[in-house]
Simulated assay, not measured.
Amino acid sequence: METPPERDAAAAARHARFGSLPKRIQFHEMVEEQAAGPNAAVATAYNPEGSWKHFSCLALDLGL
């Protein structure tokens, strides 16, 4: 039994494209390290004067 030439060409094209797995990516190629800025701690610091902006209470919303 011989396969038709069109099928062989299609199978060869598929094998050329999908015949092997891609090259494995190493962990150090996926990771990029950056130093944190000096103001990173200041941006996330607790601000007692501005904390009321994030306070939510139904009694206060209703004016009770």
Rank of each mutant, 00 (worst) to 15 (best):
G63K: 08
K53Q: 15
G19C: 07
G19S: 08
D8I: 09
A45N: 07
K53S: 04
A41M: 12
E2C: 05
L64S: 08
G37C: 03
A9T: 06
Q26P: 03
A9K: 11
G63F: 02
E32S: 10
A10D: 15
R7A: 08
A41C: 07
L64H: 08
S20R: 14
G19P: 10
A43N: 11
L62C: 07
H28N: 13
K53G: 06
P4H: 06
P5I: 01
D8K: 11
K53I: 04
Q26K: 13
N39E: 15
R17S: 10
F55S: 13
P4C: 10
A43I: 08
P48V: 03
D61P: 00
D61C: 04
A59W: 06
W52I: 03
I25D: 13
R14M: 05
A36M: 14
A36W: 01
P5Y: 00
L64P: 03
P4W: 00
T3Q: 12
A36T: 10
H15P: 00
Y46V: 05
V31T: 09
E49L: 12
A11S: 10
A45M: 09
A12V: 04
C57G: 03
L62G: 02
E49V: 08
E6C: 02
Q26L: 11
E33S: 09
L64R: 14
A10K: 12
D8N: 07
P4F: 00
E49F: 02
R24N: 07
L62Q: 14
F18W: 14
S20K: 13
E6V: 02
L58W: 03
E6W: 00
A11H: 06
R17K: 15
A35F: 01
P38M: 02
K23D: 14
V31P: 03
S20Q: 12
L60W: 06
K53H: 06
V42G: 04
N39C: 02
E33Q: 12
A59L: 15
T3D: 12
Q34L: 05
A41D: 15
M30I: 06
R14A: 11
A12S: 13
P22Q: 06
F18K: 13
K53C: 04
T44H: 11
A59E: 13
A41P: 05
A10W: 05
A12E: 15
A41G: 07
A12D: 13
Q26V: 03
A43Y: 02
H28Q: 13
